[in-house]
Amino acid sequence: MANQGLPIWEVFIRSKNGLEHRHVGSLHAADAEMALENARDVYTRREEGVSLWVVESKHITASNPEHQGELFEPAQDKVYRHPTFYKLPDELEHM
């Protein structure tokens, strides 16, 4: 039987409480339950996490790298959004 039947899932792991879930890779599974079980075996054999998320890859909408410029370049000339843009005297502490 074709593996096309088994959809691709993306796997996210929270390595410990207090940290966000991070993408670690993907796998094939028939449903969410199987995806979770497979994720446990494939990605957490050495206590890599305390929580797992799985989401079917087709549900992720990704930005197109060709639109990288129009999406992200406008932020480049907005240096005034960074604290270092503001010139303050050296003697000023803790700001």
Binding site: Q4, D41, V42
Partner: peptide, 28 residues
């Protein structure tokens, strides 16, 4: 544990190959 790891390595790598537009089915 070692042999299970090798199976895991295969799976990480198949996933990486799939990002380039080839299916797991075709790889197998």
């Amino acid at each position: 544990a070692k042999v299970q790891d090798e199976g895991g390595h295969g799976l990480y790598l198949y996933s990486a190959a799939e990002t380039l537009g080839i299916s797991r089915d075709e790889l197998f």
